[in-house]
């Protein structure tokens, strides 16, 4: 609701949407490079900006069952990855509230 400008990030490295270059996350908020998505390698981020979150869904992953939401670029609508709402395995709880962005859908914008 309401008009909002997209957020812009600053830092040594800023990742953006490969379709429209919208700023998404900085390397400072990256937690891990060792994830896999639908298009290959994926990164786990502490926080991302300029994304719209979809409806929650249950998804079975290699590390167990999770409740996740797909995330879309706020400008062009491309599906970029997902957000972990809930991890059922205690060892995976650290992912809750964190974001996955697929490496192939990212581009360095700064």
């Amino acid at each position: 609701m309401g008009m909002r400008y997209r957020q812009y990030l600053a830092g040594t490295r800023v990742y953006g949407c490969s379709t429209c270059r919208t700023h998404l996350a900085t390397i400072h908020s990256m937690l891990s490079r060792a994830f896999n998505g639908q298009h290959g390698r994926a990164y786990l981020f502490e926080g991302v900006v300029n994304v719209v979150e979809g409806e929650p869904s249950e998804r079975q992953m290699t590390t167990g069952n999770h409740t996740v939401r797909d995330i879309f670029c706020v400008k062009c609508g491309t599906t970029l990855g997902w957000k972990y709402d809930r991890a059922y395995e205690p060892s995976q709880k650290y992912k809750e509230g964190k974001f996955i962005l697929e490496r192939n859908l990212l581009v360095d914008v700064q």
């Binding site: 908020s29 891990s32 060792a34 650290y94």
Partner: peptide, 18 residues
Amino acid sequence: VTLQDGGTPPTGAATQAS
């Protein structure tokens, strides 16, 4: 900031991005 491997939880070193 140390990047963690997939399986291991981070040690809280990650900055509060926002």
